[in-house]
Amino acid sequence: MSHLALLYMGCEGQTRKITERIDYCLTQSGHDTVVISIAELKDDFSLESFDGVILGSSIRYGKHHRECYQFIEKYSDQLSTIPSYFFSVNLTARKPERRDPHNNRYLQKFLKQISWTPDRVEVFAGALLYTQYHWVDKQMIRLIMKLTGGPTDITQNTEFTDWRRVKAFAEQLNQDLQRVSRPVATYGKQSVEHGSAMNVF
């Protein structure tokens, strides 16, 4: 089986939670995994010892984390040599039509801005954690929710993550990684580039 790096960048812990669920599914399938926050990576970190990498990032105010962009810029050459995957975590994906990677504008914008083409991408709805936000963030996010029809009670937290989708994504990654021929991964990259089906269903 594969030796995999599962890397994530988030704020309140939902992206880490999703990463850990993917990790659980992959280890159950026999893969050897390491889960690391991008923010905790050391300067001498390398992907050379890994057979594949899964990278996840949440967004805040319409943008994926700066650290995620910096990681991709630094390791783009290494990412291109092994099976590599990306998932985005955002509240827009709480709406069914925005769960499709093709219809999630945040993900599409992100893919156009980076120098890496993942073999497979996915989008997951995150969590609305009012009780964990700083006052300014709480008010801003509440306003965004009011404008977009989301929950506005700042005393309540809401988890939108569909864990069945997370499991399905992990299962698809396992299938991808069990294929020994690299052309399958290349096909995945072409799928992203040319806009054909990227979803895991």
Score class of each variant (00 low, 15 high):
Val200Leu: 05
Val123Asn: 07
Met9Phe: 03
Pro118Leu: 10
Glu73Ser: 14
Thr148Ile: 13
Asp32Val: 04
Asn90Gln: 04
Thr161Asn: 06
Ser191Thr: 13
Thr19Gln: 11
Met198Val: 12
Val123Cys: 09
Trp135Arg: 06
Pro96Glu: 10
Gln175Trp: 13
Asp137Ala: 06
Thr92Leu: 15
Phe86Met: 05
Ala168Ser: 10
Cys11Glu: 13
Pro83Tyr: 02
Glu40Arg: 12
Lys112Gln: 15
Ala5His: 08
Tyr130Ser: 10
Gln78Arg: 06
Met198Pro: 00
Leu7Pro: 08
Pro151Trp: 09
Ser37Thr: 03
Ala127Gly: 06
Ile22Asp: 02
Gln28Gly: 09
Glu171His: 12
Leu7Glu: 05
Val121His: 02
Arg179Thr: 15
Ser196Trp: 14
Thr27Ile: 04
Tyr61Met: 13
Lys167Ser: 08
Ala185Trp: 08
Met9Lys: 11
Ser49Asn: 09
Val123Ile: 09
Trp163Gln: 09
Val89Asn: 01
Leu47Lys: 07
Val166Thr: 05
Leu129Met: 14
Ala197Phe: 08
Gln172Glu: 11
Pro96Lys: 10
Thr186Pro: 00
Thr92Asn: 12
Ile38Gln: 06
His102Lys: 13
Val200Glu: 07
Glu73Gly: 07
Ile18Pro: 07
Asp51Pro: 08
Gln190Lys: 04
Pro83Arg: 09
Gln172Tyr: 07
Ser46Gly: 00
Val136Phe: 09
Arg142Met: 11
Ile114Tyr: 12
Ser76Met: 06
Leu4Gln: 06
Leu4Ile: 15
Gly56Asp: 05
Phe86Leu: 02
Ser76Glu: 14
Met140Asn: 01
Leu79Ser: 05
Leu177Arg: 07
Val192Ala: 10
Ser2His: 11
His194Ala: 03
Cys25Ala: 12
Lys63His: 12
Arg99Ser: 06
Asn174Tyr: 01
Asn90Leu: 03
Leu143Cys: 03
Thr148Ala: 10
Thr155Asp: 14
Ile54Val: 15
Trp116Gly: 11
Arg142Gly: 04
Phe169Gln: 03
Asp32Phe: 00
Arg120Lys: 12
Asp23Lys: 08
Gln78Tyr: 02
Thr15Pro: 08
Lys167Pro: 00
Leu177Ala: 05
His65Phe: 11
Arg99Lys: 13
Thr131Pro: 11
Lys17Tyr: 03
Ser196Asp: 08
Gln172Trp: 04
Ala170Thr: 09
Asp32Trp: 00
Val184Glu: 07
Asn174Leu: 00
Ser84Cys: 09
Ser29Val: 03
Gln132Gly: 02
Gly126Pro: 11
Gln172Leu: 10
Glu48Gly: 09
Ile59His: 00
Val136Met: 05
Asp137Met: 06
Glu159Ile: 12
Asn103His: 14
Met9Glu: 12
Ala39Ile: 02
Glu73Lys: 15
Ile18Val: 14
Asp43Tyr: 01
Lys74Trp: 03
Phe71Glu: 07
Val180Cys: 06
Thr33Ala: 03
Ala39Glu: 14
Gln139Glu: 01
Lys109Phe: 03
Arg179Ser: 10
Glu122Arg: 01
Gly13Trp: 10
Trp135Ser: 07
Lys146Gly: 12
Arg16Val: 03
Gly56Phe: 08
Phe124Trp: 02
Thr148Met: 13
Gly30Ile: 13
Ser2Asn: 13
Ala197Gln: 15
Phe45Met: 07
Glu48Pro: 00
Ile72His: 07
